[in-house]
Amino acid sequence: MAHRMVVQQPKPVIMAAATDQWTTSICECDNVNDCCFSFWCCSCFACITARDHGECLCLPLVDSFGCIPPITLSMRVSMRRTFGIKDTICNDCIYAFCCGPCSYCQIRREMKARLHPVTLINNRAQ
């Protein structure tokens, strides 16, 4: 009886989100805890999200000094530039002004989707 010897182990296949669009819409809530946290304590949630994006922890607190929150707007633009998402500055202004908590939730979901790729491991014997 002949045995097949495995010479090379199969390598994991990594699939990451690689699109030029947001992976979720502005009001798409896949994590109720994040949505509730951002709604009831948007300042805290925004600070944590800014920190996780590599910005100063207290930077979103500057938003209270303008008509269009400059840091929320900047965070959206930064996310779009970082991941090559095609959208308009007009949409960023509208979302920053009208939907601050939803905007931060979308940014957080985008970071999770793009910075934590799905790893698929092929376990088939050859």
Rank of each mutant, 00 (worst) to 15 (best):
A50N: 07
R4I: 13
T49K: 04
N122C: 10
M79P: 06
R80D: 10
H116R: 07
T88F: 01
C29K: 14
Q8I: 12
Q8V: 10
R81S: 15
C99R: 10
S38F: 00
S103C: 05
G66L: 13
D52R: 02
S43R: 10
M111P: 01
A17M: 11
R81E: 14
F97T: 07
N123D: 11
L120R: 02
C44F: 06
C58Y: 12
T19S: 15
S38W: 00
D92R: 01
G66M: 12
V6G: 05
I89D: 14
H116T: 10
F97V: 08
V62E: 08
C99D: 12
I14P: 02
L73A: 08
C35G: 07
L115D: 14
R114C: 13
P60N: 00
D30M: 07
C90D: 03
I48P: 07
C42P: 13
P70T: 00
L59P: 02
A18V: 12
A16E: 13
L73S: 03
N31F: 15
V118G: 04
H53S: 12
Y95P: 06
H116N: 06
L73F: 01
C56M: 11
F83D: 09
L61P: 12
D34N: 04
M1T: 09
T72V: 00
S78N: 09
T72G: 09
E110D: 05
L73N: 02
I94P: 04
T88I: 01
S78Q: 12
A50W: 04
F39M: 00
N123G: 10
C105G: 01
M1F: 07
I94H: 10
C27K: 14
R76Q: 09
P60R: 00
A17T: 13
W22K: 00
N91W: 11
R109P: 02
L73W: 00
R4M: 15
C44I: 03
M1W: 08
R76S: 05
S25V: 05
I68G: 04
A125G: 09
N31Y: 15
C98T: 02
S25C: 06
S78L: 08
A2H: 14
